[in-house]
Amino acid sequence: MLNNAKGVYIVAQTPFDERGNVDLDSIDTLVDFYRGHGANGFTVLGVSGEAGKLSAEEARQVAERYIKCAGDLPVVIGVSNPSLAQLSAFSREAMDLGAAGVMIAPPAGLQTDEDLLGYFGEVFRRIEGTPTVLQDFPFASKVAMSVPLIHQLIERHQEIQLIKEEDLPCLNKISRLREGNGRRVAILTGNNAMYLPLELQRGADGPMAGFSYPEMLTQVYGLHQAGKFEEADDLFDIYLPLLRYEAMGFWGVCARKEVMRRRGAIRHATMRTPGPKLSEKDLHEIDRLVARLETRLGR
């Protein structure tokens, strides 16, 4: 059950070959890479997974391959779509493939609590009983959800089992969500794990984020669970320059793919058009950041 989710749910990339075709074989190596670094689950076809650039058939193929490769690890499939018909159809398809649940963010244009309550009422009428991650990411969705509204949605809809909390500022919002007296749901955090140690201190159950060194996410989480808070902070600080570099929107995802290509996780660092391409200066910066990181880890 997603309401008991803890640990690191990796926001997985969608790999493409040099021509921009979906590279299904690289999903196999990518899952092995993430699993080898301690992933507890996966989130597929999110914003940084370039879901909006895939056809419906490609999205199904990517979801199916990740679910198959993940084996016993839970896989959450992003199904957000302005079309409720497409959202509900893909949700059913994802669950039939073996997904642990779906992730939904509200579509742009919803402005009031009444709008949001009505929207999610219709969503869960169509996908009744489907375990759901409610994604609170106003930067991408352009929709703000208040803490009282989220509490109300949780109480109205048993389908909501996990909140992906990545509003900014995130820390007080996590605290306020945890202070609610209603049904407990899991809280995993996004924003590229930029604030992970602080978010864990506020009551988050782990990150739902992507990073080219996923072992940092699992090690920081493990240290925090062991009560070794200073050690968790010290380790996080070592990775912070590269983590920050990868936090620059789709350009940062492009940099992340390049680092993962170098680490053997995927064959190509391609972003599907429209998407950024790294310059020689960018590649030089990545060289330097990775070299400095490896040096500090070696010490």
Rank of each mutant, 00 (worst) to 15 (best):
Y34W: 07
K228W: 06
E294W: 12
N3P: 04
G249Q: 13
T43H: 02
V143E: 08
D287V: 10
N191C: 13
D17T: 03
A89N: 06
P169T: 09
L293P: 05
G222L: 00
D233C: 12
A265L: 00
A269L: 00
G49S: 15
R261H: 04
D113P: 10
R125F: 06
Y221S: 01
F90W: 09
L117D: 09
N81A: 04
E58N: 09
S26H: 06
K228E: 14
A5H: 00
L149C: 13
L134N: 06
M248Q: 15
F211S: 06
V147S: 10
I174E: 09
P207A: 11
E285Q: 15
R35V: 13
L283Y: 07
M260L: 11
L30V: 04
L24N: 11
Q161K: 07
E165A: 13
P138I: 15
Y66R: 09
Y221R: 01
L84W: 08
E128W: 12
T43R: 00
V123D: 01
F250S: 13
T29L: 12
L97V: 10
G203A: 10
V259A: 00
F33R: 01
P106M: 15
M260D: 05
R19G: 07
R256D: 08
Q152V: 12
L171S: 05
L242W: 08
T43S: 03
R256C: 12
S83H: 01
A265Y: 05
R176L: 14
I187D: 03
G206P: 02
P15K: 06
L223E: 06
F250K: 13
E159C: 01
A12P: 03
D72K: 14
T14H: 11
A269S: 14
A94Q: 08
S26I: 07
N3T: 05
S212L: 07
R262I: 10
G180D: 08
Y213R: 13
W251T: 14
I187N: 03
S279K: 14
E294K: 15
A193R: 02
D96P: 02
A56Q: 12
L2Q: 00
G98F: 03
L171Y: 12
A99F: 07
S146Q: 03
L235F: 11
L168N: 11
P131S: 11
L283I: 10
E165I: 06
K6N: 05
F236G: 03
M194Y: 12
I154T: 04
M208P: 03
Q161I: 01
L278D: 08
T29E: 11
Q158F: 06
Q225H: 08
A105G: 14
L2A: 05
F90I: 13
L217E: 01
G46Q: 04
G264P: 01
V31S: 01
S146A: 08
Q225D: 04
R126V: 11
A226E: 13
G206Y: 03
L97N: 05
P15Q: 09
V76G: 02
R65G: 05
L24I: 14
T132Q: 07
E258L: 15
V44M: 00
S80Y: 03
D28Q: 13
D28N: 13
P197F: 08
G49D: 09
P214W: 02
R183W: 08
E258Y: 15
D17R: 03
M103W: 03
F33D: 02
A204M: 00
